Simulated assay, not measured.
Amino acid sequence: MTSILRIETSIKGEASVSRKLTDRIVARLTDATPGARVTVRDLSAGVPQIDGAWIGAVYTPAEARTADQDRIAAYSDALLDEVKAADVLVIALPVYNFGLPAQLKSWIDHLARKGETFRYTEKGPEGLLTGKRAIVALSSDGTKMGSEIDFASGYLRHMLGFFGIADVEFIAADRMVFDPEATLKAAEAEVDRLAA
């Protein structure tokens, strides 16, 4: 059975363009794969930032953790387990101030764990989450995807690749401020052409 992990990050709720696109992407995938299991992780309310307590928790063996370390590690482990279990990640990427939303960056920070999502070899880093596909719904008011002021899409593609996820597709509703209706319509048409 195909497992889809949907990551929501927009703070705009139902008005979110990236959420409209992830709705459509997930519908496209589930229509093509009846029985697919969808897990939703909505990060819009925020994600705890990693800190010294987090490092102490996740890199301490489970049997040696304190109660506080257990609590910290449990949240981070849940995020990691969702990604490991997924065949396809559908990620909402609204561009805020030319970059990723803070909550998406914090989610990535929780996932970036040596020995879990990557390892270092004599040939350099090696991603451990291979065989997965990611579809990213990028939305922005004025930032064109791939332009010199887009610090979001390249970073996300790099980090997914660093984790071993090389099959990454972007659906972009960028520069919405200039022609929102036509831009959204074009992005929706891209979704409809996605290989499921």
Rank of each mutant, 00 (worst) to 15 (best):
T130S: 01
I165P: 08
E122F: 04
I25W: 09
G131C: 07
V90M: 13
S10W: 07
I55N: 08
E181G: 01
I72H: 14
R113P: 10
D77L: 09
D23C: 06
V90R: 11
A189N: 09
A172Y: 06
E63W: 08
V58A: 13
E82N: 13
G127Y: 09
A53M: 11
E122S: 14
F162C: 11
D150T: 00
K20D: 07
G154V: 00
E169T: 15
L89W: 04
W107Q: 05
Y59H: 14
D77H: 12
T66Q: 07
L104R: 06
V177M: 14
R41N: 10
R41E: 07
L111I: 01
A173T: 01
T60I: 05
L80Y: 09
G154C: 04
V58I: 15
D179N: 15
L80P: 00
G142H: 08
G35F: 04
G56I: 06
A102M: 11
M145V: 12
I72R: 14
A86R: 06
Q49C: 00
K105F: 01
I171L: 08
S106H: 00
S10G: 14
D179V: 02
R113V: 12
A85Y: 10
T2D: 04
L194W: 06
V38D: 13
A78M: 08
A166D: 12
E126R: 12
F98E: 13
I135N: 04
L184G: 10
S153G: 08
L128R: 05
Y96S: 02
G115M: 05
H158A: 12
A112I: 08
A74M: 09
T130G: 01
E126W: 07
G146D: 09
K144Q: 14
D31K: 10
G115R: 05
I72L: 15
D23T: 11
L138R: 12
L43I: 11
V90S: 11
D141W: 01
S76L: 04
T22V: 07
S3Q: 15
K185S: 08
